[in-house]
Design a protein around this nucleic acid. Structure first.
Lengths: 67, 67
DNA sequence: TAAAAAAGCAATATATATATTGCTTTTTGA
DNA sequence: TCAAAAAGCAATATATATATTGCTTTTTTA
């Protein structure tokens, strides 16, 4: 499923996918696919994205999983 | 650097590396290297580990990064 | 409403996470 | 204190995240 949280946080900061990609040292395509929920990104990339968007891992990548 | 948080949470639940590996569908070696801080695991694996240990991503993988 | 910017899509190449195997060292418990 | 379990280490194999390139479609804006 799409990761709407990243897209929202990104747009909220007025960044394009390319802008975010540059900030985290990734590719526009990679960012696009992560937002589309078609990737299983590495922890480091997740952390870099979170920092670039002033969010935490939980904010962007954690959903309350029912026990 | 070592990820002491995972090791602590794992031992706290009385699990061996092999036990945790089985729970998350990974290998003992992979768990060991993650605990040693020598891996850049995938988001999915991080999420599975967090769920298996009843923790969140932030609990195990997020350090307060100074701005 | 048209041009520019942003985003989507897809194929191939490359880097690296993860598995597998086998052995050694450390830790634990009877 | 010693045997068994757990963890460390290292080499090779495999799967997959990510990059690269090029083109198309959608969105934005003047």
């Amino acid at each position: 499923m799409e990761n709407i949280k990243i897209k929202l946080a990104r747009v909220e900061k007025g960044l394009s996918q390319q802008d975010l990609a540059d900030l985290v040292g990734a590719t526009r395509q990679t960012i696009g696919l992560i937002e589309k929920g078609k990737y299983n990104p590495s922890l480091n990339l997740c952390i870099n994205i979170a920092k670039a968007l002033d969010r935490t891992l939980n904010d962007l990548f954690w959903y309350e999983h029912k026990k």
